[in-house]
Design a binder for these strands. Sequence first.
DNA 1: CGATAACTGAAACACGCGTTCCAGTTAGAG
DNA 2: CTCTAACTGGAACGCGTGTTTCAGTTATCG
Lengths: 191, 191
Amino acid sequence: MSTPGGNPRRADAMRNRQLALEAATALLAQPGTALTVEAIAKRAGLGSATVVRAFGGKDALLDTAISGLLEPVVQRAKTLLEKDSPEQALRTFLGELIAFQSAHHAISDQLGGLDLPATATLEAELVRSVDEMIAAARANGTIRTDLAPAVTTTLISQATYAIARSQPASQELADAFLTVLMDGLRPPTPG
Amino acid sequence: MSTPGGNPRRADAMRNRQLALEAATALLAQPGTALTVEAIAKRAGLGSATVVRAFGGKDALLDTAISGLLEPVVQRAKTLLEKDSPEQALRTFLGELIAFQSAHHAISDQLGGLDLPATATLEAELVRSVDEMIAAARANGTIRTDLAPAVTTTLISQATYAIARSQPASQELADAFLTVLMDGLRPPTPG
DNA sequence: CGATAACTGAAACACGCGTTCCAGTTAGAG
DNA sequence: CTCTAACTGGAACGCGTGTTTCAGTTATCG
């Protein structure tokens, strides 16, 4: 009996598990190709059964691959929060988040309809970091306070997601979005 | 031989065609239920074959249903463009567009991976109207001109789409989005 | 009324995809 | 080297969904 979703006992199986993970990660960054188990297996040079068995299912494999990509982004958010001013941290982080999602927007296509617990946890952490940036910037007086904080968070999350999804993903568009968003978030000048 | 995708010859068939169209339209406004041919047929009280035959395929049926819903929105954009100031037209229209997409966000879920020529045409018209609003507002001095017009259009389209998709779809969120977007689009005050 | 062509819809089919089976292969301990 | 349990992967399966078939029904013309 193998351990479903856990680490295999034999060295070759562990190597294959790694190959499957790398193949899935590579395909996440290469949109246009269907993200099927068959495609992942072919890219890894393995049979589809082997790929699935190593993780206990397609969902678990993608959860591992996506959360592995997302992890450094979450860490980066925490770092920025400590080192920069809230407003600067927010802008820098959103720019990086857009770049990340653009480079892997196959991820966004998978988030709906799949069960990805580790990814969901990281996303929650990410939202929390953004919340902290917003709260600090509000206290700072650098962004407007006439909107509910929760609304601001949702606004930023959704807009970021949308811009990253748009085709073609250009740096110009990302910059324009950030400019408009940050200007729109500034406290309104009375009159 | 029936006419695939065209109008049936017999009165009962025309009535069934109408029933299928109404069922599909109703399901587009009621998310959470899978938009399958079977579901549409059941709602219409018909067999699945009848539903498909009346339009020549699921895509054609949805294309007819969606473009039927989109048509008045497109007309509304043209009306606003003539009657209101560019800035006001833009804000009003975007608000209505968000409301429309929120009420039918099953539509957005179908736009990818389906062949919907009539819908695509209407979408293009819609984008063109937004382009005109933007151009007029730029000429007017009411929105910033330091961004490429095409970038502004994409920005607005994508952001609108995202907000409409967000759950839960609240009026507060839509209003906040419009406020931030329109403020961010205003010409930046020097200094 | 017939007569007939249009129409219906349950069932069969086609197809893609995730999962599981199982006969064969292989790593790795003794 | 030998032996066994772990592992492999092509094939079979299950499931969901769009499409097609075809025997039966019905609108509609004359």
